[in-house]
Amino acid sequence: MSIFVDENTKVLIQGITGNQGAFHARQMVAYGTKVVAGVSPGKGGQKVDDIPVYNSVKEAMEHHQIDASILFVPAKFAKDGAFEAIHAGVKLLILIPEHIPLHDAMAIMNFARAKGTTVIGPNTFGVVSSGKCKIGIMPNQYFVPGPVGVVSRSGTLSYEIVGSLAAAGLGTSTVVGLGGDRVVGLNFIDVLARFEKDPGTEVIVLVGEIGGTAEEEAADYISKHISKPVLAYLAGKSAPPGKRMGHAGAIIERGMGTFEGKVKALNAVGVEVATLTFEVPELVSKVLLKKAM
């Protein structure tokens, strides 16, 4: 089992004829993802390998069943592309671009909420249900099936951790990238709730970093609603204080967002925290062993 996507998910790629779009279209197909169509305005009628290209999302949807769309267009055009997909009725939208203006991100999330579309990202590596369906830009070889659910705010860091898990013989059920931007579609809680219900997930790894309050909110949720074991890895222990928002931003956080604060919040609800990536497989093995006994 898995969450968000599985072997039956039919995928559309927006921006498929671009450099990144075409490269990752092939990577996704190679992984086994059912990529059924692509969109590139003005390039309708072309093909990328065997994938038909349409001028608009609406036209693609007139010819194919589309369960999810992944967007590869430049940040300045992302709002239009996202609105196009949501408006056409796409129910799962993965936004890869980085540097989408914050006000565009707010507008996208608002429209998605109204239309019932789930948005992953922006600035995400995507989502992969290992061995079934990859919608994103992650390197294929590390995502092998297994019992570990991973949810993360950081792309490369997730590859790092999923890679070290795979090297230790531990596969993943689904790996979800929330996205590194300040306004993103999903938070830890949305994904934790799904992992809790997924029979294919036995242990959950939460990959966080300094800044914001998402990890603290996750800790609160875990204590109330999650019965499965949860482990965390946090990046940024050695980082100097970054550029912070003004006072108004600080007040929303109320002193939360530091490394120490996050560790404390997670430990308080029984979540062990790794501060080095290679500690994660050890912690996961320990939990799985304990479960088996």
Partner: peptide, 8 residues
């Protein structure tokens, strides 16, 4: 300002 959690 922008509330990250509420996305608005």
């Amino acid at each position: 300002t922008i509330d990250r959690g509420a996305k608005c």
